Measured scan of single mutants.
Amino acid sequence: MQIFVKTLTGKTITLEVEPSDTIENVKAKIQDKEGIPPDQQRLIFAGKQLEDGRTLSDYNIQKESTLHLVLR
């Protein structure tokens, strides 16, 4: 499924993921596309910060959901 990741600069990254993918996994995909190390990434969905060990389905993230990427 496709999800979108919006950065603070207003750029939107499109990722191909599975509901069973972990947040860690998603961060690795963002690193592949954008070169941002996962340890600098914070992903936010519905106002919650997403934890590395959880999966997209844990957070009920469905196709075409938009996550927000904050760098630390």
Score class of each variant (00 low, 15 high):
Met1His: 15
Met1Ala: 04
Met1Val: 07
Met1Lys: 03
Ile3Pro: 00
Ile3Asn: 00
Phe4Trp: 09
Val5Gly: 01
Thr7Cys: 02
Leu8Pro: 10
Thr9Gly: 10
Thr9Asn: 05
Thr9Trp: 09
Thr9Pro: 08
Gly10Met: 05
Lys11Cys: 03
Thr12Arg: 04
Thr12Gly: 06
Thr12Leu: 13
Thr12Pro: 06
Thr14Arg: 09
Thr14Phe: 14
Leu15Ser: 00
Glu16Gly: 05
Val17Arg: 00
Val17Phe: 05
Pro19Ala: 12
Pro19Arg: 13
Pro19Tyr: 12
Asp21Gly: 04
Thr22Asn: 05
Ile23Val: 15
Asn25Lys: 10
Asn25Pro: 02
Val26Tyr: 00
Val26Ser: 01
Val26Lys: 00
Val26Phe: 02
Val26His: 00
Lys27Trp: 03
Lys27Glu: 01
Lys27Cys: 02
Ala28Tyr: 09
Ala28Pro: 01
Lys29Glu: 09
Lys29Ala: 09
Ile30Gly: 01
Ile30Arg: 00
Ile30Thr: 01
Ile30Ala: 02
Gln31Asn: 11
Gln31Thr: 14
Gln31Glu: 08
Asp32Tyr: 08
Asp32Val: 11
Lys33Cys: 02
Glu34Phe: 09
Gly35Ala: 12
Ile36Leu: 08
Pro37Tyr: 12
Pro38Phe: 11
Asp39Phe: 15
Gln41Leu: 05
Ile44Pro: 00
Ile44Lys: 05
Ile44Ala: 08
Phe45Cys: 02
Phe45Met: 09
Phe45Ala: 05
Ala46Pro: 01
Ala46Lys: 06
Lys48Trp: 15
Gln49Cys: 03
Leu50Gln: 00
Leu50Trp: 01
Glu51Leu: 08
Glu51Tyr: 10
Gly53Ile: 14
Gly53Ser: 11
Gly53Glu: 12
Arg54His: 15
Thr55Cys: 02
Thr55Glu: 11
Leu56Tyr: 01
Leu56Gly: 00
Ser57Arg: 08
Ser57Leu: 15
Ser57Gln: 15
Tyr59Trp: 03
Asn60Gln: 06
Asn60Trp: 06
Ile61Arg: 00
Gln62Trp: 14
Gln62Cys: 02
Lys63Met: 11
Glu64Asn: 13
Glu64Pro: 03
Thr66Met: 11
Leu67Ser: 01
His68Asp: 05
His68Asn: 07
Val70Glu: 11
Val70Arg: 04
Val70Cys: 02
Leu71Ile: 06
Leu71Phe: 07
Leu71Asn: 06
Leu71Cys: 03
Arg72Asn: 12
Arg72Ser: 14
Arg72Glu: 15
Arg72Trp: 08
Arg72Cys: 02
